[in-house]
Write a protein that binds this DNA or RNA. Structure first.
Lengths: 213, 213
DNA sequence: GAACATATGGCACGAACTGCCACATGGCAA
DNA sequence: TTGCCATGTGGCAGTTCGTGCCATATGTTC
């Protein structure tokens, strides 16, 4: 199940094309900025037609945010490996640390990731798209908690509201850290991680205090 | 200073044109949805050229989100009226309640506001723009706390990180509430307010625990 | 190699914006 | 009132993103 049945020629070709588009695009974004880089240029660089570009990516944003999506997926799978009875915020905190550790056994791939963060952060046209990803990710995090919760466990079933709240408060904390890091003069990924942990550690969510609705 | 010197004919005309564009646009959004409503149609309805539309609003999103901006401003001014020594989350909670109360002495204008929320919430193309506004608002909230903080007060000066964290955690909670309300079958603004308070009350931010950076 | 499925390219088109220039309108002073 | 100046407005051409349609090329299967 973990071993892949040597993907077909077609699939290999598609994978290579896709990666080529991503690489070319990010190189151009880095050099010329996101806004001034046209899809036409990306397509030309990746040696595909513009029409084909849009078959691989629904829009220009998507190719720019591909690395972000990867990190999101990584965090999500890390979250799924946490014990089911762990409180949401604790699990999320641990998951993001796991994801970063997995990504940077050498510390290099995390830097490769953060390298994409600055160009993205500077492209105001991308900001909205980034936020959309974050919201979508938050929903998936939240879903993990309500689904994973044992219906006949010792605790009363966690409400959707609690789950969402934990997920989005968590993401807000990470965002604050990323933005602070981007604003600072540091380019060291370790500083980013440290800032993120500080933010996460000052977050607390009370479990539905006796509150009349 | 509070009384306006009877704005000039020019200014009155601009104001009317602007409001006309907003009204026409939202009527069309309500009827046909955001995506399928073209700027051309809005401009035609408001009896201005397309070129002029773009002189009033930088893009289609901006006219759609004008009511949201208004609410943001309202909350911000309410926040400025809070005592300076109030903890950020407490002040924000009170400010948003104030803003809602101001907006709905009769309960009608708040409904008028929430009426805009659904069309916006359903327009996926707007989601990113909404998030952008929220981030911008969060920054202004945060700024309020660091600036308003007395440098030689009894407490060690609040860091920017703390201020941002409070602002964005607050906005995350409100967002969760709004989304939950949109997803529910309720159209009663009171339900929205109640949900928002529940979310806000389970949020706690610890003040920078002894944490080695 | 034939038959089929799918990936690709090219073209026309719609919609969001923008720059530019000509014209109209409001404000102001002689 | 007249005329000058600032500013608001319209129209048009052009760029870019994104989509539907159809013909063609390439991989897959028998």
């Amino acid at each position: 199940m973990s071993e892949q049945q040597t993907e077909s020629l077609r699939e290999r070709k598609k994978r290579r094309t896709r990666q080529s588009i991503i690489d070319v695009a990010h190189a151009l974004f880095h050099d010329n900025g996101y806004d001034t880089t046209t899809v036409e240029a990306i397509a030309a660089g990746a040696d595909v037609s513009v029409r084909t570009f849009f078959r691989y990516f629904a829009n220009k944003e998507e190719v720019a945010l591909a690395p972000l999506d990867e990190m999101g997926e990584l965090t999500l799978t890390a979250l799924r490996r946490r014990p089911a009875d762990e409180p949401p915020l604790t699990a999320l905190r641990a998951a993001v640390i796991d994801a970063w550790t997995i990504m940077s056994p050498d510390g290099e791939s995390l830097r490769h990731y953060t390298d994409h963060l600055l160009p993205i952060g500077n492209a105001s046209a991308l900001a909205g798209a980034v936020q959309n990803r974050i919201v979508a990710l938050g929903d998936r995090f939240a879903l993990e908690f309500v689904e994973g919760d044992d219906p006949d466990g010792p605790q009363p079933r966690r409400t959707d509201l609690d789950a969402s709240l934990a997920a989005f408060a968590f993401l807000a904390a990470v965002q604050v850290a990323v933005r602070a890091w981007c604003a600072s003069d540091s380019t060291d990924p370790a500083d980013l991680a440290a800032t993120a942990l500080i933010c996460l550690d000052s977050l607390v969510i009370e479990r539905n205090p006796a509150h009349r609705a």
